[in-house]
Each structure stands twice: as C-alpha cells, then as structure tokens.
Amino acid sequence: MSMPLRETPTEVRELSYAEAIRDGLAVAMERDERVILMGEDIGVYGGAFQVSGDLVQRFGEDRVVDTPISELGGAGIAVGAALTGLRPVYEFQFSDFATLAMEQIVNQAAKLRFMLGGAVSVPLVMRFPAGSGTGAAAQHSQSLEAWFGHVPGLKVCQAATPYDAKGLLLAALEDPDPVMLFEHKLLYKTKGPVPEGHYTVPIGQAHLCRRGGDVTIVATAVMVHRALAAADKLAEEGIEAEVIDLRTIRPLDRKTVVESVAKTSRLMVVYEGVKTLGIGAEVSAMIAESEAFDYLDAPIVRLGGAEAPIPYNPDLEKAAVPQEPDILEAARSLVRGRL
C-alpha cells in the first residue's frame, strides 16, 4: 500500500474494488457539484458491475445520468460537458464498447486543448471495465489500454488494488486533462484496505509492491496479483523478484522501472493486452534506451495476451492470457540463465 503518511488518519475499511470506486465517486460528488456520472444502466440498475450501485438514490438522476446505448454520442457529450465546466465521469459498460466512441476520445478529448492552442482543457474521466476471465468471449473481454496509451493528450491508468482504484479516480477528477481508467473486471470483487474520505494516488507513479534483487517484474492490473503470487513461490526457491505495479501506462514512470532493472539486471513485463505492440514493447524499449541497458544480464521477457481474440471456452480463455504458472516458469528460466 502506498498510503501517504501526511494525510489525516482516517478509518480504513476493507472494501471491494468496485466499492472503493463507488466510495471515490461519492466522495468526489460530495466535494464537487460539478461531478456527474454518465453511462449505460448506471442508475437504478447500479451499473453492469455494480460500481455506481446506489449513487442514483444518493445524488439523483440529474447527477447519475443513464444514457441511451449511444457510446459515440455519450462520450462526445461528456467531452462537451467537460469542456464547459462539468466534471463528467463516463462509464463504458465494457471497455470493448469504447471502439464505438474512439472518434470522440482520440480526435476530440485528447486533442482539443492542443488544437486550440491551450485555450481550453478537457477534465474528463472515463472508466473502462476491461479484461478477460469472465467467459464473456471476444467482444467483452479485451484489454485495449495500450491503444489509448498511444495517444498524446490522454492519461491512462490501471489500478490493481481497491486503494489505488479510489486514489487514482480521485486524482483523475482533479486532473485538468482527460484520464482513462481501465478497471479489470476480475478485480471488482477483490478486497483491500481503503481509507475513508479523500485521498489521491498520483497519476504517473508506479508502485514498487515487492523488493527483490534477482528479476524485475513489471505488471499491470490483475497481472500484479499474479506476479506477486508467483514472486512468493519464487522466494521459496531462492529467487527474489521485485514487482512493480505500473498503475499508469501513460505517462510511464520511467524512473522506478529503470532503477529497478539497473539493480536486478533482468526484466519481465506481464500484461493482459495482446503481446505485440503493447505495454511490454514500450517498457522493454524504454529500458533498452535507458541507462539500465548496461545492466541487463539476460534477454527481456514479455508475457502478454495471445495473438488471438479472447475465446469462450474457459481453458482456452485462461490460455489466452498470462497466468501465475507462466510467470513462475518464465521468471525461473530468466533468472537461471536458460533464456
């Protein structure tokens, strides 16, 4: 946990990831009248993953706005609202549906400030339930965060814990620029300590979750938990893995990763998005270009999603993205010089 020491101590409860986001939304809505929620079925239904829950009862339909199934229009309305004084939080029901709204996100939200020479800003927050593992198959299971990470003007985060999910959301709501929050669906029910009230987790700062000297494992979202579980097993074998949760993929926390790799001399990047041209490519290239290059003592390893859409069959679905045993085996090979 990266709990800031300076904050006034508040009660820390065990909340699920979904509850933590809801808590963050409520804190923001109480603090700032301008914060509104938009999305499909986020009102009485409570959101497809029960993130908004009872917020419509607490804040009313004017601030928890059920949109028609119109992702492009809905996203664009959120952009326009952000441009003119509101602080909308737009929920995509599944991150896959953002493909319908790419125009507004990529051409408008990301670029308006730049195109208008700095005369405007777009303080927009978008939430994307993402990732596989729920049996929802190819159109409801993708991890598209790297697409957005490729767009200057956007900031892209992936919280792995309830604490970070709330802290990054609140940081996003204070950010003057559009922030895309990717939430892995398997994490929604995971629990963790979450302080009451307001706190933020800085955007652009990775979290060093576990120290170790033998290999650096850079992971995102659900892969952080798989990497940590693998690291515990590796420790029993005498291999100490250092695990870094990137938390933000744009802008990347170069310093934390470079320092770690300079120490461990070995790098492995674990992420759920399709392996090719993804987060792993960026982190690897960043290391190859950095002062840590001279410390590399083995090839860099990327564990990413398969070169296939996410399949329905549960065994195939598991096989399509890195699992704990994959991380374990790759780390062993890497550290024991078999790669």
Binding site: I36, D62, L72, G73, G74, A75, G76, I77, A78, V79, G80, A81, A82, L83, T84, G85, L86, P88, E103, Q104, N107, Q108, L112, M115, L116, V120
Partner: peptide, 23 residues
Amino acid sequence: LGANGIVAGGIPIAVGAALSAKR
C-alpha cells in the same frame, strides 16, 4: 468551442455543452 476536422465531431460536444449549461 472550435471548428472541427471530423464531420459531426462537434455535434455531441455541443450537446455536452448544453448539458453543462442546463446543469
């Protein structure tokens, strides 16, 4: 709020601005 290079790009934005005005 800007000319727009994308045909219909400004339409949802206008609606969003109207949402702000109302809210």
